[in-house]
C-alpha cells in the first residue's frame, strides 16, 4: 500500500473529493472537451480570457481520482496566469509525469502528481484536462482524445 500512497497523495485525494473550480462558466471565451477513450472519462474545461490573461477557469465532468485532481489542480495553477504560460507549465508538468527528471521549479502543487510516472497507464488521466485546455486555446471544436 505504501507505494500507492505515492500516487494517491493526500492532496490528490482531497482535490478528488472536493474539486476546485468545479463548475460551468456561463459565458466562457474558450471551451473544449477532453475524452480519454480508454475509460470513457470526459472532462470539459471553460476559460475566460481577457487581455491575454486567464481571468477565470473551471471544469466539469466525471473522471478518476487522478484526472479529477489533476484538472482541479490545473485550474488553480492557471487562474490569473498569462495565456503564454500554459504551454510552459504543460511541458514542465508533462516532463514530471512521464520522466524521472527532477521537478522543475515553479510547478508548485502540480508536482504532487509526479507519482504518476510510475504508473504509465495513468499518464493519460493526468494530462486529460491539460489537453482539453490546449485544445480550447486552439479553438478546436471536436472533443480531443488523449490517444
Amino acid at each position: 500500500m505504501n507505494d500507492l500512497r505515492d500516487l494517491y497523495q493526500e492532496v490528490i485525494l482531497d482535490h478528488n473529493k472536493q474539486p476546485r473550480n468545479f463548475r460551468i462558466l456561463p459565458q466562457p471565451t474558450h471551451h473544449a472537451d477532453g475524452v480519454n477513450p480508454l475509460c470513457g472519462d470526459r472532462i470539459s474545461v471553460f476559460l475566460d480570457i481577457e487581455d491575454d490573461i486567464i481571468q477565470d477557469i473551471s471544469f466539469q465532468g466525471a473522471g478518476c481520482a487522478i484526472s479529477s485532481a489533476s484538472a482541479s489542480l490545473m485550474t488553480e495553477a492557471l487562474k490569473g496566469k498569462p495565456v503564454d504560460e500554459v504551454e510552459h507549465l504543460f511541458e514542465a508538468f508533462h516532463t514530471v509525469v512521464t520522466t524521472n527528471a527532477e521537478c522543475p521549479k515553479g510547478l508548485g502543487k502540480l508536482s504532487v502528481l509526479a507519482g504518476v510516472r510510475n504508473y504509465p497507464s495513468r499518464v493519460k488521466c493526468a494530462t486529460l484536462a491539460w489537453h482539453a485546455v490546449r485544445a480550447a486555446l486552439e479553438h478546436e471544436k471536436q472533443p480531443v482524445a488523449t490517444e
Binding site: 500500500m1 507505494d3 500507492l4 500516487l7 494517491y8 480508454l38 475509460c39 470513457g40 472519462d41 466525471a62 473522471g63 478518476c64 481520482a65 487522478i66 479529477s68 504508473y119 497507464s121 495513468r122 488521466c125
Partner: peptide, 19 residues
C-alpha cells in the same frame, strides 16, 4: 472511479478490467 480501483488492485497483483 473504476480506473482507480484497477490501479490499486494491480498493486495487489490482481488483474481486473476497468473501463
Amino acid at each position: 472511479h473504476p480506473h482507480d480501483i484497477g490501479t490499486i488492485l494491480d498493486r495487489e497483483g490482481i488483474a481486473i478490467r476497468a473501463g
